[in-house]
Amino acid sequence: MRILHLLASPFFSGPAENVALLALAQREAGHEVTVAVDRRRKEMPAEEPAVPRLRALGLLDDEGLELSVKSPPWRVWSDLRRLRARRVDVVHSHFSHDHFLARWGRPQGAVLVRSLHAPRSIRSSLPAADAYTVPASSLLPRLLERGRTARVLPALVDPRFRPESDREASRRELGLKGAPLVGMVSTFQPSRRHAVGVEAFALYREQRPDARFVLVGDGALLEATRSQVASLGLTDAVVFTGYQQGEDFARWLRALDEVWLLGLGNDWSARAAAQARACGVRVVAVEEGALPELADARVVEPTPEAVVAASLSGQRAPVAHPTNASIAADVLALYAQVASTRAR
Results as ranks from 00 to 15, higher is better:
P190Y: 00
V283D: 01
R193N: 15
L203P: 04
P141M: 02
F100G: 07
R254D: 04
L294C: 10
S78E: 14
H94P: 02
L253E: 08
S227W: 06
L294M: 10
V308C: 01
A136R: 06
L4Q: 11
R254A: 15
P154R: 07
V229F: 00
Q337V: 08
R142T: 12
R277S: 07
F100W: 13
F201W: 09
P127S: 09
R142H: 13
A155T: 05
A224E: 15
R193W: 03
E258V: 09
E247P: 02
V182Q: 08
A320G: 07
S125R: 13
G280E: 03
Q337C: 10
E48N: 09
L139Y: 12
F11R: 15
V19A: 01
V319Q: 12
A317H: 14
K42H: 11
P73K: 11
E287T: 11
R41H: 12
R86V: 05
G64V: 08
A150T: 06
L126Q: 05
D62L: 11
S138A: 15
E301D: 14
V338I: 09
T323L: 02
P322E: 00
A16F: 08
V33H: 09
M44C: 09
G242C: 06
L7D: 07
R251M: 00
M184V: 11
E66I: 14
R40V: 13
L334W: 08
Q26A: 11
F201L: 07
R271E: 05
S340Q: 12
R342Q: 15
R114T: 14
D210P: 03
A131H: 03
Q207A: 13
A297L: 06
T34A: 14
V51A: 15
R55I: 07
V35I: 15
S340H: 12
V216D: 04
I327M: 04
V284S: 00
L22Y: 08
V308H: 00
D89W: 06
L140A: 08
A333K: 11
A202G: 09
R282W: 07
P135C: 10
L24F: 02
I327W: 02
A295E: 06
A25G: 04
V214C: 00
D130F: 01
G58V: 10
E168C: 11
M1W: 02
L80R: 13
Y132R: 11
V238A: 01
G14I: 00
E32C: 07
D210I: 00
D330V: 02
V182P: 08
D166K: 06
R193S: 10
G175L: 00
G242A: 08
D330S: 15
L65G: 03
S93K: 05
R171G: 08
G217F: 05
T133R: 07
T133Y: 06
Y335R: 05
R146G: 15
A278N: 00
G58Y: 11
L332R: 10
A309T: 13
L312A: 07
H99V: 02
D130H: 15
E301H: 14
A328I: 04
H5N: 12
R84A: 15
S96T: 10
R277L: 13
W104D: 05
G175I: 01
A250W: 09
G183S: 03
R120P: 01
D98Y: 03
A290S: 04
A250F: 10
R146D: 14
R167G: 04
